[in-house]
């Protein structure tokens, strides 16, 4: 098992190289002159040249990449153009944790509701409950994030006054954005759980369990769900990445100062080091989460023997 984890971590290295390369090249792929854009509309040629020098854009490309990586490994992602603060402290002081918190709560909500809905649907195939849950799931999947967010604010904050309209700080602030973020995931998990459970519940070993005299509940959870969980875990891992992306919109709607809003604000201000840094952090987080998912497969399923 330990060997497997070590190997799995080594396997992320090529992915990381790809990610850093993509993020690094962003600076060079944007149309026009990056230095000119960042220096602002009213900059004179000397200021632009100064900016180019600061960003190291005069050096050969490969050298730029290596110094980018070298600095990144040491936790230096450059300085924000907008605030002049270090990109890493901009990200990790609070924004990163807010977004991670939001994504985690969103994921937890998605998993709880998705699993419950999926199990109810699967065990009551074609019943009224099944059909209505799947229709709700389809809605959840089809609703755009920003619209759902606005509707939730309208209903629960403006009309009912249960939750604050926007901002961050208490757990009440977290509920609506987390629901907004988690809904699509819950819908996907529900549909995935349903189909996976239906397949498993038709297996002979489920009949074996019934034949032993195991109660319905135990058959569903101990024999059914445990075997149905693997595809669901995959979806949860991938969903976490989607959540990070979804945070951009959700944080904007709810005026939450997380990574998502940071990206939006930085793009608006042509603050490329900041954009680069945020994307890199998100990408690394995504890779880490999915590596963890892969490792958890092994714990869930003794049959996946990859050593």
């Amino acid at each position: 098992m330990f060997l497997y984890i070590v190997r799995r971590i080594f396997q992320t290295i090529p992915v990381m190289i790809g990610v850093t390369l993509a993020v690094f090249l962003m600076m060079h792929l944007i149309p026009g002159d990056a230095a000119k854009i960042m220096a602002g509309e009213n900059a004179n040629p000397e200021q632009i040249e100064q900016m180019r020098e600061n960003l190291g854009l005069n050096e050969p490309l490969y050298q730029q990449y290596f110094s980018f990586i070298g600095n990144a490994v040491q936790g230096d992602l450059g300085n924000s153009i907008r605030t002049s603060r270090a990109v890493t402290s901009e990200i990790f002081d609070s924004r990163f944790w807010i977004t991670v918190q939001l994504a985690l709560v969103g994921t937890v909500l998605a998993v709880i509701f998705g699993l419950l809905a999926g199990i109810i649907s699967a065990t009551r195939k074609y019943s009224f409950a099944d059909v209505s849950l799947m229709v709700i799931a389809l809605f959840g999947l089809s609703m755009p994030n920003f619209w759902l967010g606005i509707m939730l604010i309208y209903l629960f904050s403006v009309n009912l006054g249960w939750f604050p309209v926007a901002g961050w700080g208490t757990w009440e602030h977290m509920i609506l954005p987390a629901i907004t973020l988690g809904t699509a995931g819950a819908a996907i998990i529900a549909r995935m759980t349903r189909s996976s459970m239906l397949e498993v519940m038709d297996q002979d070993y489920i009949r074996t369990a019934y034949a032993k005299g195991v109660s319905d509940k135990l058959v569903i959870y101990k024999h059914g769900l445990r075997n149905a969980l693997i595809p669901v875990v995959t979806v949860v891992g991938l969903q976490f990445g989607t959540l990070l992306g979804g945070a951009v919109i959700t944080e904007t709607v709810f005026a939450v100062n997380g990574l998502g809003r940071l990206v939006i604000d930085s793009i608006r201000a042509h603050d490329f080091p900041m954009v680069q840094g945020t994307i890199l952090v998100c990408a690394v987080l995504f890779v880490v989460v999915n590596t963890m998912v892969d490792i958890s497969y092994r714990l869930l399923n003794k049959r996946i023997d990859l050593n």
């Binding site: 297996q203 002979d204 070993y205 009949r207 074996t208 369990a209 024999h223 445990r226 075997n227 399923n301 003794k302 049959r303």
Partner: peptide
Amino acid sequence: FQDPYASLNPR
């Protein structure tokens, strides 16, 4: 059961 591969819970 017939299928010895399907009738035992893999877990």
